[in-house]
Simulated scan of single mutants.
Amino acid sequence: MTNSDRTPHPRRKGPGREEGKRRTRQQLLDAALTVFAREGFHAARLDDVAREAGLTKGAVYSNFASKEDLFLALYDHRLGEVAPRMVQAFARPGDERLEAIEAVLGEAAPNSTWLQLELEFCLFALRHESARLKLAERGRWVRQALHAALETHSVTLDRPLPVSVGVLAWTLPALTLALELQANVMPEDRPARVWPTLLRTLVGQESSRPSRAEEGCSSEGC
């Protein structure tokens, strides 16, 4: 037997191996969302995620460097679903555009669990520079996509936007989060169609005069 015969050949990564890695990663992401929702970001442990997924802690670390990176992978998945659909909505013609944008924002609005996790991670990021930089990078990506969509939208209007495209691209994500926070804290006081009304004003296609319900009038105050 020659030396070349004894030399081990590198193991090839076939489709089955890659599919197995993809399934393991998805198991961990699903388990992480369950554990984060139950325990909160701070209290959740990677041991709990591994147990929920029916895998070892080593499987977690072979896919994610830390709990922070695991959460950001969930965050990326969410952004990857919403951002392209938002860009497509802004590209729709005429009156269809605002309806499409409202639909995307309505579906993308964080539920109570995700809102809590997002706010909790934001506070974590303010105290940990590496997390802040990673979160800021994702925020810039969202703003760039939104900026491009708003520029395309602005050229179709017969009047200028009320504020610059750059200001709108910065404001809309923050306003969405703030509105959902307030709506979750005081759901009984939320005016009807508050977001569509604001959106139509901000992107330069004002709706007709809002009804008393849309203005937030209560039976006591109107």
Rank of each mutant, 00 (worst) to 15 (best):
M1A: 15
N3F: 15
D5Y: 07
H9V: 13
G16Q: 14
E18D: 14
K21T: 09
T34L: 08
T34G: 02
T34Q: 08
F36C: 09
R38W: 03
E39G: 07
H42K: 04
A44P: 02
L46Y: 07
V60L: 13
Y61K: 09
N63Q: 12
N63P: 05
A65D: 12
A65S: 13
L70S: 04
A73H: 00
D76Y: 05
E81A: 14
A83N: 15
A83T: 15
R85I: 02
F90D: 01
P93F: 01
D95H: 07
R97D: 02
L98I: 12
I101L: 14
G106R: 09
S112N: 10
L117N: 04
L117R: 11
L117Y: 12
E120P: 14
L123D: 14
L123E: 13
A136V: 03
Q144P: 06
A145G: 13
A148W: 05
L150Q: 03
L150K: 10
L150D: 02
T152S: 01
S154M: 03
D158R: 06
S164I: 05
A183E: 00
A183S: 12
E188A: 14
D189H: 07
A192S: 09
L199H: 10
R200N: 08
V203E: 00
E206A: 13
S207T: 12
E214T: 06
C217Y: 11
S218C: 13
